[in-house]
């Protein structure tokens, strides 16, 4: 069947099978920042934003995004120019192997958009969406905190 939706600001149409997850569809469309980790909604490596809400693309069916707006890391950066969240993660050396980072970027974007006044506690509470197997949480939290604070100025 066909689904139409908005991907990173552009309208797209794609042929899907019933069993396709949003994650599968995004990969087929060349959106490869979205990573499959646990496949059960624990790790957050596949986090994307659908209609301004953070979701796990490994548990959402592709058919469920019909008519909706999907945002991935590819939609944040323009050409070679990085988004402030990506700049902050680089500045704080928050990425080790990097596998979890696109999911963390989307969680950070969700926090900036929905909790602009977030305290460190709130940031940590929402970042439980994401597991980093390298264990680099301290720098990840510092990077996200800095970019959320900077966005208030």
């Amino acid at each position: 069947m066909m689904v139409e939706f908005t991907l990173n600001g552009r309208k797209v149409a794609a042929e899907i099978a019933g069993k396709d997850r949003l994650l599968d569809l995004l990969w087929r469309l060349g959106v490869k920042s979205v990573k499959e980790g646990c496949s059960t909604g624990d790790c957050g490596s596949c986090n994307v934003i659908v209609d301004n809400r953070l979701v796990n693309s490994c548990m959402m069916l592709a058919v469920q995004v019909r008519g909706r707006k999907v945002l991935t890391t590819e939609g944040l950066s323009r050409d070679e120019e990085l988004h402030p969240i990506q700049e902050a993660l680089l500045e704080y050396t928050a990425s080790q192997c990097g596998y979890c980072i696109p999911g963390i970027v989307m969680t950070a974007k969700y926090i900036m958009d929905n909790y602009p006044e977030a305290s460190e506690e709130t940031i940590r509470r929402i970042l439980i969406s994401n597991i980093c197997r390298c264990g680099g949480y301290t720098r990840i939290v510092e990077a996200v905190k800095s970019v959320v604070q900077a966005s208030r100025l």
Binding site: G41, N47, N56, M59, T107, R125, I126, I128
Partner: peptide
């Protein structure tokens, strides 16, 4: 606080 992560709670 107690029910999964915010992403889980959206779904």
């Amino acid at each position: 606080d107690y029910f999964g992560s915010e992403a889980t709670r959206h779904m």
